[in-house]
């Protein structure tokens, strides 16, 4: 299984809450899409505590975190 969280446009702390839930509930790959640098920085801090692989794809408007399985 895998999961995708689209957190674009959500105000603080929802992007991180959704990511936190997804990472806790989903052992498979998780994709998280955010569109503010504030959320990107918080997510990086959150993910630094996880033992999962992380690939970050930045475009002009959004940042996509592709997170590997647990």
């Amino acid at each position: 299984m895998s999961r995708e969280v689209d957190a674009r446009g959500l105000s603080c702390p929802q992007p991180i809450v959704l990511a936190f839930h997804a990472l806790a509930e989903e052992p498979g790959p998780v994709t998280i899409i955010v569109d503010t640098q504030s959320a990107v920085e918080s997510l990086k801090r959150l993910l630094s505590r996880e033992k999962r692989t992380v690939e970050i794809i930045e475009t002009m408007e959004t940042t996509v975190f592709r997170i590997g399985p647990r």
Binding site: R8, G9, L10, S11, P13, Q14, V17, L18, H21, E61
Partner: peptide, 13 residues
């Protein structure tokens, strides 16, 4: 509320 995914919706550019 926030734990239970409270949201005021998504802002648009």
């Amino acid at each position: 509320f926030n734990k239970n995914k409270f949201t005021l919706g998504a802002a648009k550019p």
